[in-house]
């Protein structure tokens, strides 16, 4: 990055450290923080949407829809989420290729599962073999985001389902007695009021989501954990910047970053809760009223 870093073997002390920390691989490492933040920024709204859909389905009056919703919300309870992470990434990948295979090469006669192999016609590969490396990485990232969204959507569905049930029944009955249709009651009364009940659960979920981001590494995305391992491992004299095993310091750095992120979120979410609870007919709102007196 700097011109003085052209020959790192001659450097010493602080200038060595500066050059080391701005080497090309380290720049990649810093960019991978953006990967994590992107994951958070994309997953949170998508998962919330999934959760909303799941909660609505679980409340539905149509039995099959309700069953789907209940199954979706129940799925995360008994099984470790990491199983879902590992499962969905392969399953989604194979599912997409299988569907594309059905469309692109309908006259393919060989079976798709040949013993230990999953073989679709070459045109159905996603992304196609000829496409650039960046597309492969993006596809991998998109699959990871979608997987996160499915799993966290199920968590969010649980929270939102509980919150929808927590809205006082009298509120909905009043709206019905004014002649609102079920859809109007849902949109005008239920949804605006449920957020204050959902907030504790959703903030908990946000913390969990932050703490689940290192699992990206398991899904094959080059995230901060990947780079910390890569950069921290011992480097021999063959490398430009030889150093012993420094993984401990890299992971310590990651840990501090995560602690900062969770602490910051906690402060912001507490502020938000205060604002939402203000004037609400709940225990928290009542406590605020008392202290204000």
């Amino acid at each position: 990055m700097f011109s003085s870093c052209a020959d790192p073997k001659t450097l010493e002390g602080l200038s060595w450290l500066v050059c080391y920390l701005t080497s090309g691989k380290h720049i990649d490492f810093y960019w991978s923080f953006l990967t994590v933040l992107t994951l958070l920024a994309v997953t949170a709204p998508v998962a919330l949407t999934f959760g909303f859909g799941g909660a609505m389905a679980a409340r539905s009056h149509v039995a099959p829809v309700r069953l789907v919703g209940k199954t979706y919300t129940a799925m995360v309870r008994g099984v470790p989420d990491i199983v879902f992470f590992l499962f969905f990434v392969i399953a989604l990948d194979q599912g997409i290729e299988w569907m594309k295979h059905q469309v692109v090469c309908p006259d393919w006669t060989q079976p798709i599962r040949q013993g230990l192999e999953f073989r679709v016609c070459p045109e159905a590969k996603v992304p196609s073999n000829s496409s650039a490396q960046i597309w492969h990485q993006l596809y991998g990232f998109a699959l990871a985001v979608f997987t996160f969204a499915i799993v966290f959507g199920a968590f969010a569905a649980n929270v939102l389902y509980g919150a929808m049930n927590a809205v006082p029944r009298a509120q909905l009955e009043t709206a019905e007695s004014y002649g609102m249709t079920p859809r109007q009651v849902f949109r005008r009364i239920l949804v605006p009021q449920m957020w204050v009940y959902a907030l504790p659960g959703l903030s908990n979920l946000w913390m969990i989501l932050i703490k689940a981001t290192p699992l990206l590494f398991l899904l094959g995305v080059k995230d901060i954990v990947y780079w910390a391992r890569e950069l921290g491992s011992a480097k021999t004299q063959a490398y430009a910047y030889p150093h012993p095993d420094w993984r401990l310091w890299y992971f310590l750095f990651l840990m501090v970053c995560y602690l900062l992120m969770t602490r910051l979120s906690e402060i912001v979410l507490n502020k938000l809760a205060k604002r939402l609870n203000h004037g609400q007919a709940t225990a928290a709102g009542e406590a605020m009223r008392r202290t204000a007196q």
């Binding site: 932050i210 703490k211 590494f217 840990m255 602690l259």
Partner: peptide, 18 residues
């Protein structure tokens, strides 16, 4: 705060490399 605020995954890595 330290153990609840950071991912278990990182804690494992950190402990192993230590």
């Amino acid at each position: 705060f330290v153990f609840r605020g950071s991912p278990l995954f990182i804690q494992f890595f950190l402990a192993y490399s230590a």
